[in-house]
């Protein structure tokens, strides 16, 4: 098994108090991983640590075998932030233009779309089932469609690892399901490693093979088989007989 992300004895805190303490985890290539846990338990923080936008107090993170502060090939590791859909709705951009802009470094001397790049845009749009919306204005699409466009924008870079921070927030159930299906397809067909922060505990079991529960400054690892979740009488989530 080839590890995609390895985390060794990682500790981190924004101020004096630690948020994550002595965390160890390994994500292999081709894994579909879900990060779950209450708000403020360090899920988004860990993604930022992986991306090297935050520096750990202690410990090490390796991306595809390379320590992340020395990692350079960021096209292979892409991040879709929670804030991705916060943009000016009336901005005059078509879906095609938006995706094309992410291929800036693949363009030649003139930063324009060549037929070859145009084909890649089509392929990635097909992957997320939005081929028809190629020339639509981004602001006119629904929230779910926009999220799919942003996934397509990530796909043109042909990444090996995609990190998603709550991609399903504010999207209706049916579309949530569609997006999950797209991510599963990416994971199974292209072998893309997917790490996703999610609050949708019911659907996690069906899609992920590994589940990491963030709790009390630590991260607990479950495989999908041993993962059970139910609602307590008070309406709180209970994962493997302990409260989340």
């Amino acid at each position: 098994m080839n590890p995609a992300i390895e985390i060794c004895n990682l500790s981190f805190g924004y101020q004096k108090n630690l948020l994550l303490q002595e965390v160890n985890l390994t994500i292999n290539k081709g894994d579909f991983v879900a990060f779950i846990g209450p708000n403020g338990s360090g899920k988004s923080t860990l993604l930022k640590l992986i991306l090297n936008t935050l520096k750990p107090k202690k410990g090490e993170i390796k991306l595809l075998g390379v320590p992340n502060f020395r990692f350079t090939d960021w096209t292979k590791v892409r991040y879709i932030s929670q804030k991705v859909r916060e943009f000016n709705d009336s901005f005059p951009a078509t879906v095609k233009e938006l995706i094309a802009s992410n291929m800036y470094h693949q363009m030649g001397f003139l930063k324009l779309v060549t037929p070859k790049l145009s084909k890649r845009i089509d392929q990635s749009l097909e992957m997320v089932g939005l081929s028809k919306c190629r020339n639509e204005q981004i602001g006119n699409l629904s929230g779910g469609q926009q999220q799919r466009v942003f996934i397509a924008r990530t796909l043109v870079k042909e990444p090996e690892i995609i990190l998603l921070d709550e991609p399903l927030v504010g999207i209706d159930q049916k579309t949530q399901h569609e997006i999950q299906q797209i991510l599963i397809k990416l994971n199974q067909k292209l072998g893309t490693t997917i790490v996703m922060i999610s609050h949708n505990l019911e659907s996690i079991k069906g899609q992920s093979n590994k589940i990491f529960l963030f709790k009390d400054m630590d991260v607990f690892n479950y495989t999908a088989k041993e993962f059970t979740v139910h609602l307590s009488k008070k309406g709180e989530w209970v994962v493997n007989n302990s409260y989340v």
Binding site: S101, N102, M107, K111
Partner: peptide, 14 residues
Amino acid sequence: VLVFYYGFFYLSFN
């Protein structure tokens, strides 16, 4: 503008 077209696009988008 032509040389940096999509750079300017991305910059103005976000």
